[in-house]
């Protein structure tokens, strides 16, 4: 296991799509155990940055590391949980089957996975809906089960892309409580958001991003 002090570290990370620069120069570091906000207006390059951290999008330049390991090392993602913006899924699966699939992808042992799935369904308030197909879930319920799949592997870093999108006030409160609990357990949380109020409530530090570049990092 890497001894890097940082959960996330990027240097001059850049992404260009054709002639459009989505991320021009992303240099930031997120310490282990801190809740880090990534704030910026729509179109600032936030989601592209998150996708580069998870190897969904390949950088055009620069370098990046998770726990000291390069972004393109798939094994490092066993220590990471991810909730994408506009969460989509295999909607013909039942809630518990969906979580089992993702537990299998994390290669969790069967018994451990079963116990963890039960705990997480309880945590996100979906135990009663575990045997329903995902296509029957409301938008808020989908966001909750998405959050549950991001926590299956008891990650050391959780990346949340607009985590409260589609949630009602109770759901938002639940997300905040989960983030608080993760912080207490020493888990680093990287929150991508365009809502200043949300970042202010939950984060230790915040980076402001504009035109694909960090313009300021502040303590909160």
């Amino acid at each position: 296991m890497s001894q890097s002090a940082f959960a996330i570290e990027t240097r001059n990370l850049r992404k260009v799509f054709g002639d459009k620069v989505a991320v021009s120069n992303l240099t930031l570091s997120v310490e282990r155990g801190e809740v880090f906000g990534f704030l910026g207006p729509n179109g600032a390059g936030k989601t592209t940055s998150v996708k580069m951290l998870l190897n969904l999008v390949f950088p055009s330049g620069g370098e990046g590391y998770l726990f000291g390991q390069p972004l393109n090392d798939p094994s490092i993602r066993s220590r990471v949980g991810f909730l994408p913006e506009h969460f989509r899924f295999h909607d013909w699966l039942r809630g518990d089957e969906f979580l089992q699939l993702h537990a299998d992808l994390y290669r969790l042992p069967r018994l451990q996975a079963r116990r963890r799935i039960g705990e997480l369904l309880e945590l996100v308030g979906l135990t009663a809906h575990a045997s329903k197909k995902l296509r029957e879930y409301s938008k808020g319920m989908l966001q909750r089960i998405g959050l549950a799949q991001a926590l299956l592997n008891q990650p050391e870093l959780v990346i949340l892309d607009e985590p409260t999108s589609g949630l009602d006030p109770v759901g938002r409160r639940l997300v905040r409580d989960i983030i608080r609990d993760l912080r207490q357990r020493g888990v680093a949380v990287f929150i991508n958001s365009h809502l200043l109020s949300e970042v202010e409530i939950t984060c230790d530090r915040v980076a402001f991003i504009k035109h694909g570049e960090v313009i300021r990092v502040s303590l909160l």
Binding site: L54, S75, Y106
Partner: peptide, 9 residues
């Protein structure tokens, strides 16, 4: 996305 973001090649 959630599949590729797992420790999967």
């Amino acid at each position: 996305q959630t599949v590729v973001a797992k420790p999967v090649r």
